[in-house]
Write a protein that binds this DNA or RNA. Structure first.
Lengths: 343, 343
DNA sequence: GGTCCAGGTGTAAAGGATTACATAAAGCAC
DNA sequence: GTGCTTTATGTAATCCTTTACACCTGGACC
């Protein structure tokens, strides 16, 4: 028995059953152009009877519009991006848009291939979180004026609109919080170099340091590359410094968790011996011992905002180079040495 | 300036440039049917020169094949499903398939709407994790012989192939582990009722209990509905029992974490006063205090296996009702009262 | 009664690929 | 030279909708 992958009821069948032409059926269904009450009701009736559903492929081919946007992210397993996906999905489906999602695994070549595939599939627009590396491949698409919005990370090579957290402000507030408690030896575990997120966060730390009269080089820098293993290593490097830093500020969720594990492993007390703050909240942050103080981001908000901006570009045809900053919030739990507010 | 959402180079343009017919171009490009070396090279050259990329919509419309599978899951924010998505994506793209992913939020009506949309979009097959509730809406699709594979949860109403964890065996081993340590008062925090996962896991617990001479009713049951808030409540109920259970077995990751928080909140010591085991490992499980003993599942493996099965069904046209069990593994950390093996 | 307009409808041409079928040329055996 | 097969190619139909255009009818108006 062969599978019948595609439906067989066609617009033509509806037309025949209703005793009208295909044009009339189409006009009724799309509410586009005139149609008598008589014809309208007969068409609707026929659609019901036959359980007709339009062929999306034919419709898109003819209409040059797929109502689909592509979403290309580095790592879906990072809960930050997971929530971003969800935000995008909800905002998109609320407006009748579909989303095709892809994973680059932080591989620029894979990113290029995925974007290519999505464009071949005639997406109407693209939401992209660019991987580190040169984005020359984007040039032809830019000329074609493909609607693109970048999220989380801004791309310097091309003038594209970007929706990101207010990384500078978030890092500034976290750093200021530690400095205000009198700490002066602060160690930072940086994310992937040359990414706008890493640089903006570092700039925020530096601004706070300056306000408290520290020189830029007073901040102790290690590089964790945003991944658990390297974050763990970087945290160990911090703990090996002498004198030991009074606080560690890890630039993402994975590294903050890794840092806490490194601290536990050494049997150093947190926050008594060393304070810890992470960038980006995550589900388990409050369940850890001690509960983690973090800079909360709003990934779903970034997603919905990106959809909003993208659909605007698609509708109006005018792209701006605007940078949309989504606010962050410092969530004070116990790991920074404060007692958490009543839970 | 209007946006040009679609590319303009057509097969016809390639044909003209190469000085051959469209049929020849198509034959060369798809390696389907004969073509002289002369024609072949000229076509390939023209494709290069014009940077031609076939229109996927037209190709799919004509070919009655989209090389796309739909993936419908309850909750992408649960890391279990996140990994499952990743597994599906990798397996699919390795075989040249695309994936459209959707979220039901455990809402059966939304599930129905999403499946409808995917079918309208002419997916070649569907991977579905069914939400609790009656699946009558599936009947017409079954008649149409749409290739479907369910994952994680089996659907009883319809004879569909399913790929799930070996839930019974996993729960059996975890329970046996606790019983073997001499514990007898075991509290279970169950997931959503009427789901095959919940029932299979419960069956596993019962089998172990029976082997150790316990009656089924000796197992202390609470219902957490698989969510954090209700899991927390259920854990509190467990802690309120008197005498207090010697161990809690939470039927998913969220509820295990919630249970640990409830234990901490009461200042009860884990594992000294009460042991804890969770079903499903998650990123932070090892970072918690104490590190959580869990039944590890293999969500990515479930995903790849589902893709394999689905593509087989699409290719051969023959669907079976087979149940594919993916093994689980008990990861012993500290929360069950054992000292974790050297990390 | 003739003109104009509006509303309603149908015919046929896109949209861009694949492919059944027809045709032509070439190779080979007799 | 004839007939048959094989290879290469082109023409046109097909997939299913949307929509430009032409047409027709009937009413309003002069």
């Amino acid at each position: 028995m062969p599978l019948r992958p595609h439906k067989v009821t066609r617009l033509k069948d509806v037309a025949e059953r209703a005793g009208v032409s295909t044009a009339t059926v189409s006009r009724v269904l799309n509410d586009h152009g005139p149609a008598s009450e008589e014809a309208r009701s007969r068409v609707l009736r026929a659609v019901q009877d036959l359980d007709y559903h339009p062929n999306w492929l034919a419709r898109s081919l003819r209409g040059r519009r797929t109502n689909t946007i592509g979403l290309v992210l580095p790592d879906i397993e990072n809960p930050f991006f997971t929530s971003l996906v969800k935000g995008v999905e909800q905002a998109a489906s609320a407006q009748g848009w579909n989303v095709i999602f892809c994973n680059t695994d932080e591989d620029i070549r894979r990113e290029e291939a995925l974007v290519r595939t999505l464009i071949d599939r005639k997406i109407d627009g693209l939401i992209l979180c660019p991987t580190a590396g040169p984005h020359d491949y984007m040039a032809p698409y830019m000329e074609r004026r493909l609607p693109v919005v970048t999220v989380n990370r801004a791309l310097r090579d091309f003038p594209l609109p970007a929706v990101t957290s207010d990384n500078l402000q978030g890092a500034y507030e976290a750093t200021r919080h530690l400095l205000a408690k009198g700490m002066r030896r602060l160690a930072l575990i940086l994310g992937t170099p040359n990414l706008s997120t890493t640089e903006d966060r570092l700039a925020g730390c530096r601004r706070a340091a300056q306000e408290f009269g520290l020189a830029p080089e007073d901040l102790l820098l290690t590089v964790g590359h945003a991944r658990t293993a390297q974050g763990f290593q970087a945290a160990q490097d911090c703990l090996d410094m002498s004198p030991r830093p009074q606080a560690i500020f890890a630039f993402n969720n994975l590294m903050a968790e890794a840092a806490l594990m490194a601290i536990h492993r050494r049997r150093i007390r947190c926050p008594a011996d060393i304070a810890l703050i992470g960038f980006d909240d995550f589900r388990s942050a409050a369940a850890l011992t001690p509960p983690l103080t973090v800079v909360e981001q709003n990934p779903a908000g970034i997603g919905t905002r990106a959809v909003k901006e993208l659909t605007r570009i698609i509708a109006t045809g005018e792209a701006t180079q605007a940078l949309h900053l989504i606010p962050t919030r410092l969530i004070i739990r116990a790991s920074c040495g404060c007692t958490a507010p009543a839970a």
